[in-house]
Nucleic acid binder design. Sequence first.
DNA 1: AAACAGGCCTAAA
DNA 2: TTTAGGCCTGTT
Length: 270
Amino acid sequence: MEEVEIRTEDDFDLKKIFECGQCFRWNAGPDGSYTGVAMGRAARIRRDGERILITGSEWDLEDVWRGYFDLDRDYRALRHSVCVDDYMKKASDYGAGIRILNQDRWETLCSFIISQCNNIPRIKKIVETMCRCFGEETYLGDERFYTFPDAGTVAGLEPEDLAPLRCGYRAPYIIAAARAVDEGTLDLEALSHADLASAKKALTALPGIGEKVANCVILFSLRIGSAFPVDVWMKKAIAQHYPRGFDPEVFGENAGLAQQYMFYYQRENS
DNA sequence: AAACAGGCCTAAA
DNA sequence: TTTAGGCCTGTT
């Protein structure tokens, strides 16, 4: 086991990053650290002043985590850039410290298929069971974890094989997505270089993936910052603060981050 | 017990 | 183009 240390003076709040709804595999410990599995490795992360300390396997390279936490972008500046009115000023102040993670594309696609019409505890449980059933073992010291199964593995399964997940009608959607990724019909890597509209079009062509799930996948794993997922919380926020309607294009390439501030502010204050 | 949960799909206006 | 109802399952 090794410890990677990353220094940053930028916005960085572990609790907000992991609990603003973008990921499902990190869990808080009693000491404020978070433990989880990402990119095929288990890790424990804590913050100490300007230091971010990541305990993981010997392959844990700083670059990997810099990419994951999007540490090469200046979130303080981005945060100020989305303060287009009093409400956004409040929301972004409240959410200061949020960062948009660069997550594994297939895992994100699959996780957000599962998320539909579900609550967070159940989403996490289903994802965890999926890893336990079909992922690979990985260790953090003596603690055993399971990686997220790759698309090729899931592509070889049938919907019935997912019965232990208790994910109901989403099972065939998961299998179809896995096969599309595995066969190359859906090239997520290529989509990360595409524009928002074409990425959305490609994703929503799959069964069980609509506008909302597509936007989440695009924002949280394809690194296209203009994606703007609208779920029930966002609908409430918009109805409350923009009764005359509003266009996320006012935020340009940072619409996704603006959405995260709005979402987090709405959810934490209801 | 019935309704609802971080949607999506289909059928019908 | 918008709207209603159904969908697996778990929880309240």
